[in-house]
Amino acid sequence: MQKLFSQNIRDLLKVDLHRHLDCSVRWSTLVELAPQVGIELALTAQGQKDQFLITKPMKDLGSVLNKFLNAQKILASEEILTRIAFEVCEDAFNDGVRILELRYAPTFIAEDHEHLSFEKIHTALVKGLEMAKKRLPMAVGLICIIQRTKSYEDAVKVVDFAIDHKDTFIALDLADNEENFDPKIFAPLFQKAKKAGLRITVHSGEAPNHLAATWVKDSVEILGAERIGHGIQIIRDPIIMQFVRDRKIPLEVCPISNFLTQSFPTYESHPIRKLIENGILVTINSDDPGVFATTLTDDYDVLHQVHGFTLQDFKRANEIAFNASFIAENEKARFKKDFFDHV
């Protein structure tokens, strides 16, 4: 096995297809801005971390999603949104990421921020991304998220907004806890988005539920998903695993996130190796590096230390991710030589 060490894993050029912009706020920025938006910080450093960060496994995905609400309160102005969008790109670039897809839910940021319309939120975020792209050699795309836990009426508004801004959105996503939220009802909205030219990725098969693999199949067949966010629970069903393999649907796997949400109880029990051995197209992603206090390099390090990933393993995952990225080919082209031996 080719030996890697943490210090040069960071130097590897990377693709990150699954990173939530609204949960990737830099820790120092969180601490700085919290008092400005009316959040009283705990008196100790550990207390402050406990307020915002998830660094140990939570009991389930729902518990993790609730913790995100503390960080959400920071997203209180257009100026803050522009700043965090730029900083997310800067942090990713410094971690070796050259192809970056960021996603956010307009309804999540707007919650309890009545002065922030979808339009103001999006304009502010795009401004930050454009600032980053002018200063940093990287390709960045933006994905719009429907929160499946909100009303259908909210979902309609989000999809219409995404279509109206398809010049700055590359795709549509469906996120939040799948349990008790059947994906089938969203089919007309995803069909509408796809017809308008948006690509489709769907959070599915993340939580350890006996129906999780079936939800992945539904997301592909009914919602038209071209990629699946997480999808790791297909390991439970060989038939659906074969379905995903035959359809060549890439999985956006987030190893540290999967441990912290207890999708699998230990890093050792994560099925990433088994998925790859079964011919599944696997990409490696960071998910929520702000709230998790991680970088994509940390995910690589876990895979190297626990699952014996080599440079070739990482290279293959990045090739898959490069090809699966929804960012326009002409924007990705200048980085192609970084990820492929023969261009």
Rank of each mutant, 00 (worst) to 15 (best):
Gln233Leu: 06
Phe190Ile: 06
Pro289Tyr: 09
Gln48Gly: 00
Thr82Trp: 04
Pro238Gln: 08
Ile99Pro: 04
Ile272Tyr: 02
Thr294Ile: 14
Ala196His: 04
Glu178Ser: 12
Gln7Trp: 13
His203Asn: 02
Gly224Trp: 05
Ile228Val: 14
Arg135Ile: 01
Asp338Gln: 14
Ala85Asn: 00
Phe108Trp: 15
Lys194Val: 00
Glu130Thr: 15
Ile276His: 05
Lys337Val: 11
Gly96Cys: 01
Ser204Arg: 02
Ile74Gly: 03
Phe68Asn: 11
Ile232Cys: 11
Leu281Gly: 04
Leu75Trp: 11
Asn66Thr: 09
His307Ala: 07
Glu206Cys: 08
Glu153Met: 08
Leu100Phe: 06
Gly279Lys: 11
Asp164His: 13
Thr294Trp: 03
Glu329Ser: 14
Arg26Ile: 05
Leu41Tyr: 01
Glu331Lys: 15
Pro35Arg: 13
Leu65Asn: 02
Phe68His: 10
Gln312Tyr: 05
Phe161Thr: 04
Ile146Gln: 07
Thr123Gly: 01
Leu211Pro: 00
Thr168Ile: 13
Phe169Cys: 07
Val31Ile: 15
Phe108Arg: 08
Leu296Tyr: 02
Glu252Gly: 00
Arg199Ser: 08
Ile272Asn: 04
Val88Arg: 10
Leu281Lys: 12
Ala155Thr: 08
Leu116Asp: 11
Phe259Asp: 00
Leu21Cys: 02
Val126Glu: 11
Asp301Ser: 11
Ile284Met: 08
Asp341His: 12
Gln36Glu: 15
Cys89Val: 07
Leu174Trp: 03
Lys3Asp: 10
Phe314Gln: 03
Phe339Pro: 03
Asn180Lys: 13
Met241Ala: 11
Ser77Leu: 12
Gly141Gln: 00
His342Asp: 10
Ile272Val: 15
Gln191Tyr: 01
Lys274Gln: 15
His210Asp: 09
Ser24Glu: 06
Asn177Met: 05
Met1Asn: 11
Leu4Tyr: 09
Asp341Met: 11
His165Ser: 11
Asp341Arg: 14
Lys315Met: 02
Asp16Thr: 03
Ser257Thr: 09
Arg334His: 07
Ala212Tyr: 06
Lys3Ile: 15
Leu53Asn: 05
Arg148Met: 07
Asp164Cys: 12
Ala124Asp: 01
Glu268Arg: 15
Glu79Ser: 13
Thr201Asp: 01
Phe190Gln: 06
Gly290Glu: 04
Arg227Ala: 02
Lys336Met: 14
Ile327Cys: 03
Met131Trp: 10
Ala333Ile: 12
Gly47Asn: 09
